[in-house]
Simulated assay, not measured.
Amino acid sequence: MLLYIHGFNSSNRSEKAVQTAQYIQRNYPDLSFYQPQLPSDVDEAMALLTQITEKALADNQPLRFIGSSLGGYFSSYLAEKYGGKAVLVNPAVNPYDLFEEFLGPQYNPYTDEHYQVLPKDRNAVAQYDTHVIYHPDRFLVLLQTGDEVLDYRLALQKYHCCELYIEPNGDHSFVGYEQQLDKICRFLQLP
């Protein structure tokens, strides 16, 4: 099983999500691949991700995750809790510390959804934090130093013991992501 997890105010139709889906379809057509549109509510999003993960576990499928930004944060939690391997792309490290700037009305341009980020959402996100990475061998972390949304040095500090791939410049979307898909799939040990 491979679960692609998009970031905050993003979508399963984002460029990285679509590139990943197309690559998997071309190269691993028999792989159980999930790319859900996450609900804007944090607990509902994690409930959906947990349901997919637990079903794969029940079916004795190896667990694999690709997470971008907030999806990387969620992927860390799932890989630490359930096992499996995870590739994190410009992952959020402490997203709850950024909540003040996102409080209030939000708009997701991919889904055309209008919703509110409330103070309670900060605590909801914080409960999925992996303060310590106990299984560094489970993670490949892709970072670009030009990320304009998240400070890549926070991820470098948190995931220093994991396999890291750091490129200069770039941006939060991870410029050239599609060229990393071979490396990603090798790390995930796709069949």
Rank of each mutant, 00 (worst) to 15 (best):
M1N: 10
M1L: 07
L2P: 09
L2K: 01
L2H: 09
L3D: 09
I5N: 01
H6T: 07
F8G: 01
N9I: 13
N9G: 08
S10G: 06
S10Y: 00
R13S: 14
R13Q: 15
S14H: 04
K16V: 13
V18Y: 02
Q19Y: 03
Y23K: 09
Q25N: 10
P29N: 07
S32V: 12
F33Y: 15
Y34C: 13
P36M: 06
P36G: 10
Q37S: 11
Q37H: 05
L38A: 06
S40D: 14
E44S: 11
A45D: 07
A47N: 11
A47C: 10
A47Q: 11
L48I: 12
T50I: 14
T50D: 08
T50W: 03
Q51M: 05
I52V: 12
Q61P: 09
Q61G: 12
L63W: 12
R64K: 11
R64I: 00
F65E: 06
G67L: 05
G67C: 10
G67P: 12
S69P: 03
G71C: 09
G71K: 00
Y73P: 03
F74L: 10
Y77E: 05
A79T: 12
A79R: 11
E80K: 02
E80L: 05
Y82D: 10
G83Y: 06
G83M: 02
G83P: 10
G84P: 13
K85G: 09
K85M: 07
V87E: 05
L88W: 00
V89S: 02
N90G: 15
N90P: 10
A92D: 15
V93R: 04
D97S: 13
L98Q: 11
F99P: 01
E101I: 05
L103V: 12
L103P: 14
Q106A: 14
N108H: 02
P109Y: 05
P109T: 12
T111L: 03
D112E: 15
H114F: 03
V117C: 03
L118W: 01
K120L: 12
D121L: 08
D121F: 15
N123D: 15
A126N: 02
Q127A: 07
Y128A: 03
Y128R: 02
D129K: 06
D129L: 05
H131N: 12
H131Y: 02
V132S: 06
I133N: 04
I133D: 15
P136H: 05
R138V: 08
L140S: 07
Q144A: 04
G146R: 01
G146F: 04
G146C: 04
D147T: 06
V149L: 07
Y152R: 08
L154N: 11
Q157I: 08
K158L: 13
C161T: 13
C162K: 02
L164G: 07
I166R: 00
E167F: 01
E167S: 01
E167P: 00
N169H: 01
D171G: 06
H172R: 06
H172P: 14
F174V: 14
F174W: 04
V175N: 07
G176Y: 07
Y177M: 11
Q179W: 02
Q180W: 04
D182A: 13
D182R: 02
K183L: 13
K183Q: 08
C185D: 11
C185P: 09
Q189E: 15
Q189R: 06
P191N: 09
